[in-house]
Write a protein that binds this DNA or RNA. Structure first.
Lengths: 234, 234
DNA sequence: GCAGGCTTTCGATAACTTATCGAAAAGGCA
DNA sequence: TGCCTTTTCGATAAGTTATCGAAAGCCTGC
């Protein structure tokens, strides 16, 4: 099984002409489009195969199980954890750091090809293959909990329980990504930017001891995100 | 097709002895237990049939499709709408009324036999059969939006956008019921009462202009719920 | 008492799903 | 030329929801 980006030169030819690129990447690309359009459970291996230009059984040469396609195309699940790890250890006021983490998390959830809860459902059915997902989630929870604790200790935040606040913040993030992704009829829908701001605004406002300068916190959070991105690139 | 609570006296006898009660109610009871234990998608008609004491194909005499079982056992979806309708039109301070509505909504979500998002997924695949669900959801959203607007107008709440605040409140409710129902490994789990309080506390605290008396709001909300329940019974 | 109708259950089966397996069809290489 | 590797394919197993006609009892009218 080669992993090049060019179509293979060996092997039995396809009935539907030759592949345009690497079969593996073609499959991932077409599967991503189908998952975005219809969700994971409603997308069949036969449909993925037809889009990718081969037969259903041939898919299993590249991915032994359907969920391995999902696992591959979502390898960087919840990578906002990287930003959280950087900002959690950074000095300075807490609110902008937490705002940046929350905003980045919702943005990632909204940008993913699959609803968070549908992904979680698949992961829960195959815990042995998705251990990294659960580890990342627990660690993101700890990072947010730590940021809240810093804010409480500094008097910047209300005297809340940090673990509860982290659970509420993540629950709100996940619940709002769902509203963005699958808006219910009769309730107005939101853009990704709007839900990111709504979620981060809501959590931060609930925590702040003094609510005078939300706009300043937003601006500082944007700077922090940009700075962390530059540092990550260098 | 009879609807009594006694086992039928007519019809071909079952291979596995006679039924103990109404076949219809037996099926609903057994399906409920299975949905609670394994979820809807992971429960098969064969399992429901085995638990209810008949064969898979015989289920279709009582319920033409699997989702009709779900629809029947969840007929009062989101009945916290009744409390919201009463309290939305009631005079007096807003915070206790909104707290009571939010608390009751989370309690109902946590008490239901199925995860809200899994139910919503089934409803979305069969909108014609679940129109009442979407109507109820939209109306609950409007009730909460109205309560928030009342609070803002009275100066009791921050000057937020009522529609956004309602979306965030419902998103938090749904996200936290998920954390109650399916806790992720590595993150501590909550009881139903704890998530109800966490969700309502979080939303109300974010909205309140002055946060001095959350305990008093909780107490007043409890009284309002009890009063509305009594009025509903009489 | 029994013939026909009604109610309920059953077995067989269709259509669709994920997944497995051996065979087939090429290129590369001795 | 003949064999090995890579890739694809068709056939098929096992599981799912759902349909259909037949079977097996009661009940009613006569």
């Amino acid at each position: 099984m080669t992993s090049d980006s060019a179509p293979p030169t060996v092997g039995r030819p396809r009935l539907s002409g030759e592949a345009t690129g690497s079969p593996r990447l073609d499959i991932i690309r077409e599967a991503t489009a189908l998952f975005v359009a219809k969700g994971y459970a409603e997308t069949t291996m036969t449909e993925i195969a037809r889009s990718a230009g081969l037969r259903q059984s041939s898919l299993y040469y590249w991915f032994a199980r359907k969920e391995l396609i999902l696992q591959t195309l979502l390898e960087e699940n919840r990578s906002s954890l990287a930003l959280a790890t950087v900002l959690e250890a950074q000095p300075g006021p807490v609110a902008p750091r937490l705002y940046a983490v929350l905003h980045a998390d919702v943005l990632q959830l909204c940008s993913a090809p699959l609803d968070f809860y549908e992904f979680e459902r698949v992961a829960r059915l195959q815990p042995q293959n998705f251990g990294a997902f659960f580890d990342d989630y627990a660690q993101l929870h700890r990072m947010i909990e730590s940021l809240v604790r810093q804010g409480v200790d500094a008097g910047e935040f209300d005297a809340v329980d940090p673990a509860d606040a982290a659970t509420a913040a993540l629950g709100l993030n996940e619940g709002l990504q769902r509203h963005y992704r699958l808006p219910l009829p009769g309730v107005l829908s939101y853009s990704a930017d709007e839900v990111c701001r709504l979620s981060a605004d809501t959590t931060i406002t609930r925590l702040l001891a003094h609510r005078d300068d939300l706009a300043a916190i937003r601006a500082a959070a944007t700077e922090l995100s940009a700075g962390a991105a530059e540092a990550g690139e260098s």
